[in-house]
Design a protein around this nucleic acid. Structure first.
Lengths: 198, 198
DNA sequence: GGCTCTATTGACATTTTTGTTGGTAACTCT
DNA sequence: AGAGTTACCAACAAAAATGTCAATAGAGCC
C-alpha cells in the first residue's frame, strides 16, 4: 500500500490570493491579531505555508494585503448607504448601513486592528469615501460642509464604538446584545435630525 | 581591564512588577498587540527577560496582569466623574471625564485590545462601575434605570469610538485632531439633555 | 562580619514562526 | 502529444520567541 501523493488544487493567482486572504480574515476576526500566524493561515486556506509566501512574499505582505482588502470592503459597504428615498427614511437608513458596515464582517475589529497597528496611513480610500458622502447626500440636504463633516465624524466614531464593544457592553450590564446598537441608533437619529434642521 | 559585571538594581516584588507592567503598557500602546514580546518588554523595563518570567511566569501572565491593571485604571478614571456640581455642568463633566478616560493613557486602545483578544470575560470590574453610575448620579437625577442604562451604553460606545479613531479620523478628512472629540462632546451633551428631560 | 532570603541574570535549551530551495504536478497552448 | 509556464509542496534552514537553571548579588537581620 503506497502513500497517495495527495492531489493538488491549482488555482489562478487571483483565486489563490483570495482564498488565502479569506482564511487570514477569519483568523484575525476570531483569534485576534496575535493569531495571525503563517502556518495557521495556510492551514485554514488548505495550502502549505510555502504557498502563502509564494503569493505574498512574507507575513507582512499578508497583513498589508488583508488590510487593504478589508478597508475596501468596509468603504464599499458604507458607500452603499446612498439610496435616495425620502429624507426621513434615509436618515434612518444612513445609521443602519453605517452600523451594519462596522458591525458585520468585523468592520470595527478591522479598524481597531489598523489603529492598534498604526496602519492608518494607507486609508486614502476612507478619505475619499467621506468626501463623497459630504458632497453627495449631505450637500443635497443643504447641510453646510463644516457641520456635515462634524456629524460624519461623530456618526462614524459611534458606529465604530458600537461595532466594537456594543454587544459585550450590553451583555456586561445584563441586557440583550443588540441593546447598545438599538439605543445608539435611536440616539443618533434624533441627534442628526436636530442637528440638520438647526 | 576586566569587564565590570554591571551593577544590579534590586526592587521589591511589587515595584518590579509595576516597572515591568509600565514597559508592557508603553509597548502595547505604541507598537500594538503584535509588539508585546518578552524581550522587548524586558528591555523597556531595563531588566533581563528572565526576570520578567520570574515575576509573571509567562508571557500570558504579563498580558493578563497588564489587562487587569489597565482596566483598573480605566474604571477608576471613569468613576472619578462623580462630582456633585450643578446638573448642567455635571452633564458636561460626565462627557469630559468619560472621553478623557478612553482617550488618555490608551483606554480605548486597551478596550480594543481586550475585545480583539477575546479577553472580555474578566471585565467584572466594568460591570460594577456601570452599576455604580446607574444607581448613583443617574438615579439622583430621576432617570429611570432602563433609560439610564441605554444612555450609558451609547455614551461609552461613543467614547470608545472617539478615543480609538477620533484623532486619525479627523486628520483623515483634513481637520485638527481634536475636532472629532469636540463634535462628539457637543453631540452627546445635547442628546443627553434631551433624553433626560423627556 | 557572617547569614539568609530571593530578585536578578547569563547561558543554555526548546519551541514557534518565518523564510528558502529544488523539484513536482496541474494547466494552457501549439 | 509535447513543451512551456508556474502554482504548489516537502524538506531543510534560519531566525525569533519563549522558557529553564544554576549561580550571583543586593538587602535586611543577627
Amino acid at each position: 500500500m503506497s502513500i497517495e501523493p495527495a492531489r493538488r488544487v491549482r488555482r489562478s493567482p487571483e483565486a489563490a490570493r483570495e482564498n488565502i486572504l479569506q482564511s487570514a480574515e477569519r483568523l484575525l476576526l476570531e483569534r485576534g491579531p496575535q493569531g495571525l500566524k503563517l502556518v495557521e493561515v495556510a492551514q485554514g486556506a488548505g495550502v502549505s505555508h510555502a504557498t502563502v509566501l509564494h503569493h505574498f512574499g512574507s507575513i507582512d505582505g499578508v497583513q498589508t494585503a488583508l488590510a487593504e482588502a478589508m478597508i475596501r470592503q468596509l468603504v464599499a459597504r458604507v458607500l452603499a448607504a446612498e439610496r435616495p428615498d425620502d429624507p426621513e427614511a434615509q436618515l434612518e437608513g444612513v445609521g443602519q448601513v453605517l452600523f451594519d458596515a462596522f458591525e458585520s464582517a468585523g468592520g470595527a475589529r478591522l479598524a481597531a486592528w489598523l489603529e492598534l497597528t498604526g496602519e492608518t496611513r494607507r486609508l486614502t480610500l476612507v478619505r475619499e469615501a467621506v468626501a463623497e458622502v459630504i458632497s453627495g447626500p449631505m450637500a443635497q440636504k443643504g447641510v453646510d460642509p463644516e457641520r456635515a463633516t462634524n456629524l460624519i465624524l461623530v456618526a462614524v466614531s459611534l458606529a465604530m464604538g458600537v461595532g466594537l464593544i456594543g454587544r459585550s457592553l450590553a451583555e456586561l450590564v445584563g441586557r440583550p446584545p443588540e441593546t447598545t446598537r438599538e439605543a445608539a441608533l435611536a440616539f443618533l437619529k434624533t441627534g442628526l435630525a436636530a442637528a440638520i434642521k438647526a
